[in-house]
């Protein structure tokens, strides 16, 4: 559906470095592009710098004592370093944080309504969007009056995505939506992400450890390893790449290998056993 060369680039991250607490260098030159109307996946293991990249874009870094020290981030042609997260939301970029971060003591509906905080296009438009969110997540309508803290993990993830939708965003930075969810729910959430992308035209920058699922739904992928982009390409190509297959998807050309063939584990003699 998306042709990388022709589509408009929404977000451009050029060679950024991020340092936490003035000492810890987390990103060592990350560059990426997010195409309008696409789902761009950011893949990699723990500590690769996926979340940090997203927070650098949404400018949530500052509240965690991190800062972008080199490089530039450009959204729709404007440099956006140094803007408040609130400015970013008004420009149409909103982040759904890792681990859901619902407002536990607010009801599901109140949670969704906080997403519309920066909007000024009137109650009618907000109410219409609330209906739309309920249409995408029928389960949230059933639970609209329960406190978000008491809903299930999957429902909280839906609340978090629905809350972001209430801001009427152009781009959603989605951090680890599969975290702690059953495979079936992961499919459901990704299915909704896909339909939001296709029907509402929302672009996604998606950070995900679950490479397999992410590459099935994304159009383009970047692979991060310890703060650097080590590989990028259209999702379909990445899926066929032998290295990606071996290191991230756990398969190789010979099919699934037994651990016995990969490495011999010898039981070491221990004291008294």
């Amino acid at each position: 559906m998306l042709d990388g060369s022709k589509t408009e680039t929404l977000l451009e991250v050029n060679n950024i470095e991020v340092i936490y607490n003035h000492v810890i260098l987390v990103l060592k030159g990350v560059s990426l592009k997010v195409a309008k109307g696409g789902i761009t996946a950011l893949l990699g293991g723990n500590g690769a710098g996926k979340s940090t990249t997203l927070k650098a874009v949404s400018n949530l870094l500052h509240s965690e004592r991190g800062e972008v020290t080199k490089g530039s981030i450009i959204y729709r042609g404007d440099h956006i370093a140094g803007l408040d997260p609130a400015d970013m939301v008004k420009r149409g970029v909103i982040q759904v944080m890792e681990g859901r971060h619902c407002f536990e003591h607010l009801t599901v509906e109140e949670n969704l309504m906080t997403g519309a905080y920066t909007r000024s296009d009137g109650r009618g438009a907000v109410a219409a969007d609330l209906e739309k969110v309920y249409a995408y997540f029928p389960r949230l309508r059933e639970r609209r009056t329960s406190q978000a803290g008491y809903t299930s993990g999957g429902e909280q993830q839906m609340v978090a995505i629905g809350r972001a939708m209430m801001a009427k965003p152009e781009t959603i930075l989605l951090d680890e939506p599969s975290m702690g969810l059953a495979p079936q729910l992961v499919e459901e959430i990704f299915g909704i992400v896909k339909s939001l992308n296709e029907q509402e035209g929302v672009s996604f920058l998606l950070a995900e450890q679950n490479t397999n699922v992410a590459l099935r739904f994304a159009h383009y992928g970047y692979i991060l390893e310890s703060g650097r982009v080590v590989m990028d390409g259209p999702a379909a190509e990445l899926r066929e790449n032998p290295d990606v297959k071996e290191f991230y998807l756990g398969m190789s050309d010979e099919g699934r290998k037994s651990f016995r063939d990969v490495r011999s584990y010898r039981r070491r003699k221990r004291w008294l056993s």
Binding site: S63, D84, M88, V89, I94, M97
Partner: peptide, 24 residues
């Protein structure tokens, strides 16, 4: 009220409040 809701949101989770564009 909208501001009251934002106030409770901030009380619950600063980070998440920031992420939806509430100015702390």
């Amino acid at each position: 009220t909208k501001q009251g809701r934002a106030l409770r949101a901030v009380a619950d989770d600063h980070q998440a409040a920031l992420s939806v564009g509430i100015s702390l």
